[in-house]
Amino acid sequence: MKYCAFLRGVNVKGTNMKMADVCQVFKEAGMQDVGSVLASGNIVFSSDQNVADLKKVLEKAMSDRFSYEAFLFVKSHDETEAFWLGNPFDKNEDFHTYAFVGADGVENTLMDEFEKASKTENEKAAVINGIFYWQVSKGNTLDSSFGKILGRKNLKDQFTSRNINTFEKVLKKMGS
């Protein structure tokens, strides 16, 4: 089955790695058809293992190889496609739209935090089919109080986010 592993915290805050090296780790861990999409830690691969086992095996392999506490979320082709298709926001060149890949139920935690946060102009969030989406004006991602919440250490193993366009690129790499 085809999967994408969405890694958290890659090539930010001192955790730097080349995607070729990450792909090699996946190959050494027994994954097939391994390839990367962008430098933000999106690794497409094939495996017959179940998702829970893949998560454990790949997090350990990444942690061992790169000497950091790795967190990743493994999604099937259909699950990855749901992120792309579920986007509730119209395309607008003035905004970034992010979708959040994470642990079961994290969308509720994120919506609670979003509702408590002060908002920048036209900042929006929605939960569609269990996926949290966030739209923010370009240039305000890091200025948003919600944007600051996303870096909390107590949430680091709960989710990672990607610009919505990344899902389209991942799907193309997966062959759809």
Rank of each mutant, 00 (worst) to 15 (best):
S63N: 10
N108P: 04
M1Y: 07
Y98M: 02
I149D: 00
K56T: 15
L142Y: 01
S47G: 09
T97Y: 14
G139W: 13
M174N: 06
G30L: 05
D143E: 14
L110P: 00
Q24C: 10
T15N: 15
T120Y: 00
G30N: 03
N154A: 10
K91A: 14
K27W: 03
G9P: 08
K153E: 05
F89C: 13
L38W: 12
T160A: 07
E81S: 11
K56M: 13
D104I: 03
L54A: 08
F45M: 12
R152Y: 07
N140P: 13
D112K: 05
I131Q: 01
A52E: 13
F100L: 02
M1S: 12
S118Q: 05
V106A: 00
D48M: 12
V101S: 09
K13G: 14
S47V: 08
I164R: 07
A20R: 05
K55H: 14
Q32A: 11
D53K: 13
N163Q: 00
E115L: 15
L85K: 13
F66C: 08
G41R: 11
K156R: 15
V12M: 04
T15E: 11
D157T: 03
V44S: 04
G14D: 11
F45Y: 09
D33M: 12
Y98H: 11
G105L: 01
E107L: 02
Y68V: 13
F132A: 04
K156Q: 06
N92E: 08
E81W: 02
L54T: 03
A61S: 06
L171A: 07
N87A: 05
G151T: 01
T166N: 09
S137Q: 14
K153D: 04
E28R: 06
N129Y: 01
Y133C: 12
A103W: 05
E107F: 00
G9F: 03
M17T: 02
T120V: 13
F100T: 06
G102C: 07
N108F: 06
V57L: 10
E93N: 10
A61R: 14
A125H: 09
E115C: 06
A52M: 14
T15D: 09
V22E: 02
I43P: 10
S176Q: 08
L72H: 12
P88G: 03
L38R: 04
Y68K: 12
P88D: 04
A82W: 00
E115G: 00
V44E: 01
K55S: 13
F66N: 11
S40D: 03
T141L: 11
S47N: 06
N16Q: 14
G105A: 05
S176M: 10
V37N: 03
D78Y: 01
S144P: 08
T120D: 11
S46Q: 06
M1L: 09
L155R: 02
K116A: 14
N140W: 07
R162F: 03
V51P: 12
K91W: 01
T97I: 14
H77R: 12
K169A: 14
L58S: 04
D143Q: 08
E113M: 04
